[in-house]
Amino acid sequence: MSELLNGSVPLEAYLLLAAVLFCTGVWGLINSRNAVRVLMSIELMLNGVNINLMAFSSYVDGDLIRGQVFAVFVITVAAAEAAVGLAILLSLYRNRVTVDMERFNLLRW
């Protein structure tokens, strides 16, 4: 807290922001009925994790910045995930003519 008084941003502020973004993403992931919005929520969660990695890399691991390398890998995997996810969504839409998550229940127990 003493860092706030002299004006610089503490590490905890970044962690708090990342937690907000991650929890927003989790809520959206559970509650969205549009499949595209589910993918957007996943992207939000990945960004929250990336903020954490970058903050730790800058504050705790300043000389090796391994967190930044991890963030680059996470961005790569997120891009691959988005491409495959949207392709699955398109093929699903072609077969069921809806994007309502409640009706994708073929595997429902």
Partner: peptide, 25 residues
């Protein structure tokens, strides 16, 4: 956070590719 490379990658990959892909979907 002084991470200009990751910031550039974020803009290129997320805004330039993922977001456009989502808009196309």
């Amino acid at each position: 956070l002084n991470a200009s490379f990751v910031a550039a990658a974020q803009v290129l990959v997320y805004v330039g590719a993922v977001n456009v892909l989502i808009l196309f979907a």
